[in-house]
């Protein structure tokens, strides 16, 4: 049986984890490699690195971070942020990423999704979609959501669900859905849009934006609430509020099928 995934996400700026990372039993660190290793050992199902640097030098640094992290973990690595063109995808996959997320560039040119999926396989291509709820007009009952780009600073006028469906039909392997309304609030995911997208698209959906507690992870993954296939979170893990193992235990205790946490056993011969 396929389990629901818990994915810690690290925001990277100029080669460092933004806001720092504070694990229990580990000194405070902004080093992405150390953070990635800790998450891998704790039993993260996957790891996500997002580049929030705006400069060209920052981009090169990020590729180097991806390379160093990929060399340390044995779980899937998804990377994104500032991916503009095919050459960026090639560079990141070449550095050891398993999946690359495209966001604004796919909105500007949807056929980029097909081009990337044809070349690298759908399983490598994640379409990251940032959404925002629109103020309902008089007479509207169901909330509408639009796609926003450039870190939520620009409207697109695209309907969120339609765009996700289009991305899937063009060959995306997964949707990383972030609510800009919820991001950073610690109020929990936007369950309405997460559920709607997850039910409408035939590919896996990763819920993102707003997690402040383990209960929020459960809500995102519950088939009757967020219905997501994977739950992404940043700050609850960074600040040592919870470990991945605690998250897994909580989810399992509340009926969400997850991969049990397994403590490392002596398997490494070298390194």
């Amino acid at each position: 049986m396929l389990k629901r995934r818990v994915i810690p996400c690290l925001d990277i700026k100029n080669g460092r984890v933004v806001k720092g990372v504070h694990f229990a039993n580990l000194r405070d660190t902004g080093d992405p490699v150390e953070a990635a290793r800790a998450y891998d050992t704790q039993g993260a199902d996957e790891l996500c690195l997002l580049d929030i640097t705006a400069t060209t030098e920052g981009r090169d640094t990020f590729v180097d971070v991806v390379r160093r992290v990929a060399g340390q973990i044995f779980t899937p690595l998804t990377v994104g942020g500032g991916v503009r063109r095919e050459a960026d995808v090639r560079r990141l996959l070449g550095a050891g990423a398993d999946k690359v997320a495209v966001n604004s560039a796919a909105v500007a040119n949807p056929l980029l999704i097909r081009q990337l999926a044809d070349r690298y396989g759908s399983q490598c291509i994640v379409v990251a979609v940032d959404v925002r709820q629109l103020k309902p007009l008089p007479g509207e009952t169901d909330p509408l959501y639009e796609v926003v780009i450039h870190g939520g600073t620009r409207s697109t006028g695209l309907d969120a669900v339609s765009w996700c469906e289009q991305a899937a039909s063009l060959g995306a392997g997964e949707i990383l859905l972030t609510s800009m309304d919820k991001d950073g609030t610690r109020d929990g995911y936007d369950l309405a849009i997460t559920r709607e997208v997850s039910r409408r698209v035939p590919i896996p959906v990763i819920a993102s934006g707003g997690v402040g507690s383990l209960e929020h992870l459960r809500q995102g993954l519950d088939p009757k609430e967020g219905a997501a296939d994977a739950a992404l979170a940043a700050s609850i893990f960074h600040f040592g509020l919870y470990t991945i193992a605690q998250a897994k235990h909580y989810l399992a205790d509340h009926g969400i099928p997850v991969r049990p946490h397994e403590a490392p056993r002596g398997v490494l011969i070298t390194g």
Partner: peptide
Amino acid sequence: AARLKIPHMGWSDVQPTGEHFYFAHS
């Protein structure tokens, strides 16, 4: 009941060992 997603992507258990492995395939 929800439609199952394709690709089959993520950790599934195998039988008879019950161990979990990472799959990504359609």
